[in-house]
Write a protein that binds this DNA or RNA. Structure first.
Lengths: 151, 151
DNA sequence: AATTGTCCCTATCGGGGGGATAGGGATTAA
DNA sequence: TTAATCCCTATCCCCCCGATAGGGACAATT
């Protein structure tokens, strides 16, 4: 149940692109602004382009830009492009899991967990995060004081 | 964002224990009923005991039993005992993450995601899963048809 | 006290993947 | 032609995941 460094980096890079609007941004800018490891992020940028989340331009005056408006790209899409489907169990999607005996209803729990994640990650766009104005139900989640307590 | 095999196995073992009520259950029974790898599950049982989620008894007529009633043990507690804190980012809890520039508000998103997970996993007990009667808000999540669609 | 059945501990393994780097090739603009 | 940039492949290290082996500790029975 952890979020990979790669996915975290990917979202940060995308946010940095969103902040620069439609203009081309060089990888060095992204990397410096967020303080990320160079070569590693380069491979992430390739992944993001292949997932059609960003567009690239080579040569002098090259760079990267979002493939769509920041309001049309969700955090969930980015995480999925990098890490694969949300909340997999032993390499299976939650809905593909089959359980017997006492565990018969366990799949329902994993599916609910995935749905809960989707409600946050798929309904929060880069534009939301950039502006610091999250959707109401996400904001309520993040604002609750107990959400910030360790467990 | 995946649920480890170890955590999945742990929950299934716990459910099997819950199904047997307060009586001692031998590891072989648990393993056979759920079709799990023997030696691997033995190490999981040790972890669960150290986390004070189960009690064990050695010798002939030994076995395992829940440390508390099934209604007082949540799926979240089990997952946490096995995999560590929910939704960590680069080994840090979401609330410990610090971001700058365009990513300034990203921590809010990770915290919201964790809170969403907690709402499902921490409020669903073994008794709920065993009976197939999940808490209302979890059931609503799991029942939504789109929750079962891949993305 | 010997036996038996169970849990318990440590060590180990193969494989894979996460995080990261190196080096150079391809492309574009000037 | 040159310089800047993205792009690709390969590689590295290391840790962890999933899983196994073998034997030690313990409790009950006899």
């Amino acid at each position: 149940m952890q979020i990979s460094a790669k996915a975290d980096y990917a979202v940060r890079v995308m946010l940095e692109l969103a902040a620069h609007g439609p203009e081309l941004v060089k990888s060095n800018i992204l990397i410096d602004h967020q303080g990320l490891p160079r070569k590693f992020v380069e491979t992430i940028l390739v992944d993001l382009r292949r997932a059609d989340l960003i567009r690239s331009h080579r040569g002098a005056d090259g760079g990267y830009t979002l493939a769509r408006p920041a309001s049309a790209i969700s955090v969930g899409q980015i995480v999925r492009a990098i890490d694969g489907p949300l909340a997999e169990v032993r390499g299976l999607r939650p809905d593909e899991c089959e359980y017997t005996n006492a565990a018969a209803h366990l799949a329902d729990v994993w599916v609910a967990a995935r749905a809960a994640l989707r409600k946050v990650l798929d309904e929060t766009s880069l534009a939301h995060v950039l502006a610091g104005k999250l959707p109401a139900h996400v904001r309520r989640m993040a604002e609750s004081p107990e959400a910030w307590l360790p467990r």
